[in-house]
Amino acid sequence: MKETVSIMVIDDEPVVGQRLKPMLEDMGHQVEVFVNPVEAMEHFKNNPTDIVITDIRMDDMEGIEILEQIQFNHQETKVVMITGYATLELARESMAKGAFDFIAKPFKFKEIRNTISKAVDAIKAESKSRVGA
């Protein structure tokens, strides 16, 4: 059982990572921030993290694609989608494609904090059941 999880933040706007990183680290997690989604996915292949927080609309790669790739190879990774171009459709599409949660921008710290806590709980519960099995 681990309390600390690894989190990858992907957003082409640097300010998002800058603001999220200290907050997530305060929660006791390891955080890596990427501005370029392609680089992020390269890195992820060798160093998969427990949680990925990704923007949806980015230049080089769409967030939905990132979601699909991660879901294909690393089902246990929780993907949280954040986007400034949210629609109800996009939210439901993300969820249908296996996202752990979807948060529209602008959002408050506490919203993402709640989501991350839930994801950590889910990870813990899964690892427990795996140990039990």
Partner: peptide, 19 residues
């Protein structure tokens, strides 16, 4: 959205009964 209306807030309120 471009005009600065926080549509995301409204969407969050609907899809995640927080807020």
């Amino acid at each position: 959205r471009k005009a600065g209306i926080k549509v995301g807030r409204l969407i969050n309120a609907v899809i995640r009964s927080v807020g």
